[in-house]
């Protein structure tokens, strides 16, 4: 972390405005300064050292566990034996755990269930939220105030766990797929975020489309959605992460149907609680007395729940930064 104290990069915060390519990706949080200001004292060695160590520690706290778990999942049984557990340094790499896990059995089913719930749930949530957000985004539209109030009230008062459980089971939701999606399909907060972006879509643009004969469906699809792509994408990703991570509704509504469990619940049962994996995954380790699955398999399950998040994370990140400005009027 060496910085020459005299470096004053004036105006270096933004790329030169003459650059022709319109790249909204760089429009981050507006920063007042990019270099050390001339009036600032030069950094002390102790200060810089303490700062560097603290920040390195913070990064290590996140990165090191992920490294160890990822490495163990691809280690050979010999490497795990030599390490006496989790593997810290690479020592024999194999993808057997993944091959074994994806070949057959509980984990593969759980993976497919998780994907299905995530995809279907996200589609349902997005259709409902986008429609509601647009439906409430036109100022002066009929009754949008009372409907908005109806939505916002749910952010502050809720019936709580048991009345919700009774309603869902009363509708026959026990052991049904829809009970994993519909009760939590609508996030009022997300609708409000979408709505605030949709209402900034230029009124002129919408009026122009209306004069051309477009109805509200058409305007939503061809005018509003294309001009707020970033925020729509980030909300979709938030919904998707929510579905991918959900496990409590499984515990509530289908705790006994192991063949319907998503990955998070499998992770909880077979890794976190160390119960034996049923089925063929650890058949080599005696499925009859259902021993705890070998460590490499357990860590492979952890990695499987992690990888989709890591894959979408860069996109979400980009949209954290750009989403704020992309809702602004274009054209």
């Amino acid at each position: 972390m060496s910085q020459t104290p005299t470096t004053v990069r004036e105006g270096a915060a933004q790329p030169a405005p003459a650059a022709p390519a319109p790249r909204p990706a760089r429009t981050g949080r507006p920063r007042a300064r990019a270099g050390r200001a001339p009036w600032e004292e030069p950094p002390t060695v102790i200060g810089q050292g303490a700062k560097g160590i603290t920040l390195a520690g913070v990064i290590a706290a996140v990165a090191v566990p992920l490294w160890i778990i990822g490495l163990t999942s691809v280690s050979t049984p010999g490497a795990v034996n030599r390490a006496g557990g989790l593997v810290i340094w690479p020592d024999g790499v194999t993808f057997d755990a993944y091959r074994q896990m994806l070949g057959d059995g509980t984990v593969r089913t759980a993976l497919m269930v998780s994907f299905a719930i995530t995809v279907v749930g996200t589609v349902v949530s997005m259709v409902v939220s986008v429609m509601a957000a647009y439906g409430l985004s036109r100022s002066e539209s009929f009754a949008h105030r009372p409907i908005l109030t109806l939505l916002i009230v749910t952010m502050f008062v809720s019936g709580g766990l048991i009345p919700t459980f009774l309603v869902v089971t009363g509708l026959g939701g026990y052991d049904q797929w829809w009970s994993l999606i519909l009760p939590s399909a609508v996030s009022v907060f997300n609708i409000l975020v979408l709505r605030s972006f949709y209402s900034t879509t230029s009124a002129d643009l919408i009026d122009a489309a209306r004069i051309d004969g477009a109805g509200d469906w058409r305007i939503l699809w061809s005018v509003v959605l294309p001009t707020s792509r970033a925020v729509t994408a980030v909300i979709a990703l938030f919904y998707a992460v929510g579905y991918w991570n959900s496990f409590f509704n499984v515990m509530l509504y289908m705790p006994t149907s192991a063949e319907k469990w998503p990955l998070q619940y499998v992770l909880l049962t077979y890794v976190n609680r160390g119960n034996g994996l049923p089925g063929s995954v650890n058949s080599g380790f005696g499925a009859a007395n259902a021993q705890t699955a070998p460590l490499t398999l357990q860590m492979a399950v952890v990695v499987l729940t992690l990888v989709p998040l890591l894959l979408v994370y860069p996109f979400m990140q980009k949209h954290f930064r750009t989403g704020v400005l992309t809702g602004a009027i274009k054209g």
């Binding site: 509601a132 439906g135 709580g160 309603v167």
Partner: peptide, 26 residues
């Protein structure tokens, strides 16, 4: 505005069923 109102119906129905009905379940 009937189209706009129609668009809010799914969200309103879901909230009525899964958020307002439980309130009465109290």
């Amino acid at each position: 505005d009937r189209t706009l109102l129609l668009m809010t119906v799914p969200a309103v129905v879901l909230l009525l069923v899964f958020n307002y009905a439980p309130l009465f379940g109290l």
